[in-house]
Write a protein that binds this DNA or RNA. Structure first.
Lengths: 259, 259
DNA sequence: CTCGTTTCTGCAAGATATAGCGAGCTTTCG
DNA sequence: CGAAAGCTCGCTATATCTTGCAGAAACGAG
């Protein structure tokens, strides 16, 4: 059985059952458990499922728990940045989150912030990212507002005129922007122009704008521009950023936090 | 029993009872108390519950009782019903899906329908259910449109005026309704009036309306009415439905499929 | 068509994580 | 104060994972 066919079968079993164990999959497909583990790992890398010890669950399965099964031993760069961003949020605010891996970590950091465990609501979160909405939806301390729109495959972000329409009806205290590139001269940018348009609108509706980006994104340029550097108030990045880079952003009037 | 399954079960018991003791949980899940303590501690770390001496209590005061969010209740009936509903959809159509366990199964059945694995797009799916959107988002054969709105606490459905606004801008070929009660006289109903409002709008925008409900829902009434029985074209249910019940729905002009 | 290269799969051993058990400590409450 | 319940910690057994290696299959060049 070829790998393509095996992957297809695995995903189908997974969709059917919601959860699949390594041994069970190995028995049904008549391959070794090692192969299944490799398959699961590779599929998890492509966000097609979530790996658990002993098996896998569908990514985004209904009623999947927004839990992190793997408690990271040491906080990665992204998680440190995310925690710093989360600490910039004041209880009671309305905060906008764009899509992306870094903002997803911000959402998780917010979810476990101890001083946000109560209140009604402790925080209003507006997002166009399906995965973030899904993770936060079960937490009663948050009011989750989702922009409508068309889901972009791969990124879980909602884009298009429907999203614009919803965003036009709300105002935010702070917007947290996940970007693929951020440069003092060229501003913040995303991969996709539809995505950039939604992100831009999110910024415009916000009092403060925070960009969360690890240092590899800084000084880069990308296709779809979101906004100029001048529109950004705070940049949170990791400590591997060079002092010259920090200087250029500070000249543009941005407060830089390197954690 | 794997850890994710155990965590899920624990949270379900907790949401049901509001409070759960270590010993009780250990007995019901047939694991040692030490394991339950570890689980409770880890879940508390992620703000999913509050630890107390001897047990745990739900986080905050969300005593929302989501009976419909229990896992695998009547799972096989639901899957049979879901498959039948999925087979009523024609490739290329725009189909609306409301939230609920049955409609989630419909989404999964659509995802594995062999004649829908290609096409651009093979189907347009409009939904206010975050979990359905999340699950279908990775499948390139579907165009996923999400209504905006506020996520209902402890649930995955988007409701409110923002959702209404988005729905006003689209038209559907067919709407699939997941309901908590369906009666020939009193019509279809949901738990929550905001949810019912969104579902009603979804029906109004659709050419055909299909209700997917296992037989335990039929002849029941619930708080929030979605629409009259006359607005429904097809009812798909399981074979355990009584002949008298079928008759009453057919008199109301509904085509009944018992699978 | 053949040979060499690359990729994949299965096997097995060492590494790691999880669950159960019990001793000793802490808290609660009569 | 003392008993009982509950917790923490360390230990062990088991299950699961990772990794390296070898054989098999697929692929391309000559």
């Amino acid at each position: 059985m070829s790998r393509d066919a095996r992957w297809k079968a695995l995903l189908e079993l997974l969709v059917e059952q919601g959860r699949l164990e390594v041994e069970e999959a190995a028995a049904r497909l008549e391959v070794s458990a090692a192969t299944i583990r490799r398959d699961f790992d590779q599929l998890a890398e492509q966000q097609m499922l979530v790996r658990t010890r002993g098996g896998a669950v569908v990514h985004g399965v209904s009623y999947e728990l927004p839990l992190r099964y793997k408690t990271a031993r040491r906080a990665s760069e992204k998680q440190r940045v995310a925690k710093a961003v989360a600490d910039l949020i004041t209880p009671g605010e309305a905060v906008g989150l764009t899509g992306g891996t870094t903002t997803t970590e911000v959402a998780r950091a917010l979810a476990v912030r101890p001083d946000l465990t109560s209140g009604s609501p402790a925080l209003t979160v507006v997002t166009n990212a399906l995965n973030i909405a899904n993770e936060l939806a079960v937490r009663p301390q948050f009011k989750i507002v989702v922009t409508g729109g068309v889901a972009r495959p791969q990124s879980y972000e909602l884009v298009g005129p429907l999203a614009d329409g919803v965003l036009g009806q709300i105002t935010l205290d702070v917007a947290v922007l996940g970007v693929v590139a951020f440069d003092a001269e060229h501003g913040a940018a995303a991969h996709d122009e539809a995505e950039a348009a939604v992100n831009r609108l999110l910024c415009e509706r916000a009092e403060r704008v925070i960009v969360a980006a690890d240092s590899s994104k800084l000084g880069q340029r990308a296709f779809a521009r979101i906004c100029s550097a001048g529109s950004v108030d705070v940049l949170v990045t990791d400590a591997a950023v060079g002092p010259g880079t920090i200087g250029r952003f500070e000249e543009a009037g941005i407060e830089v936090m390197a954690v």
